[in-house]
């Protein structure tokens, strides 16, 4: 058995046994912004979702697929940012562990959303799902407040990559 396969098998066993939980890092919106504002030409795809939001849960696999399909070809970083109640971090971790998504996961630790929704994008009403495409240290950005099919997500992503080169 190849070492990669072996470690993958071990990971699957650990995940199934609940020993390893997918990491969900608490993050403030300021920290999140710092991350993509220092990201150079990496394309950040930041998806805002919650475990209670059905359209969000439905489209999460598309973000996982986007990262997997494109990471070898260009610098791309998908970030899954949960806006669940910060107290539900464990629940979010369990939810993600059961799905083994590739992108890094965060949970917003700030309080009152009315104070931070505009910091993400002033056109955001606060409805989820919502996705921010950002590149070149924040110089280029596109905010989309809607649910994606995989095809539409990939098209939007490729168009953004092309427009911001």
């Amino acid at each position: 058995m190849a070492p990669g396969m072996l470690s993958a098998s071990i990971l699957v066993i650990l995940l199934a046994s609940g020993v390893v939980r997918a990491a969900v890092t608490p993050v403030t919106i300021q920290e999140l912004k710092q991350r993509y504002q220092q990201g150079g030409d990496t394309v950040y795809v930041v998806n805002f979702w919650a475990t209670w939001c059905r359209p969000c849960v439905k489209e999460l696999p598309h973000f996982d697929s986007l990262q997997r399909a494109h990471q070898a070809m260009r610098p791309v970083r998908v970030l899954l940012v949960s806006v669940d109640d910060p107290k539900d971090r464990e629940k979010v971790a369990k939810f993600l562990a059961a799905r083994s998504y590739a992108p890094q996961s965060y949970i917003v630790s700030d309080g009152n959303p009315s104070k931070w929704i505009d910091a993400v994008d002033t056109t955001w009403s606060g409805a989820i799902p919502a996705t921010l495409f950002v590149r070149n240290n924040g110089k280029h950005r596109r905010f989309v407040e809607e649910e994606f099919s995989y095809q539409h997500l990939e098209q939007t992503f490729l168009r953004f990559c092309k427009d911001t080169q």
């Binding site: 359209p55 989820i128 809607e146």
Partner: peptide, 9 residues
């Protein structure tokens, strides 16, 4: 005027 997280229409 305030904002909040919610479901899309």
């Amino acid at each position: 005027f305030t904002k909040a997280i919610g479901c899309t229409i």
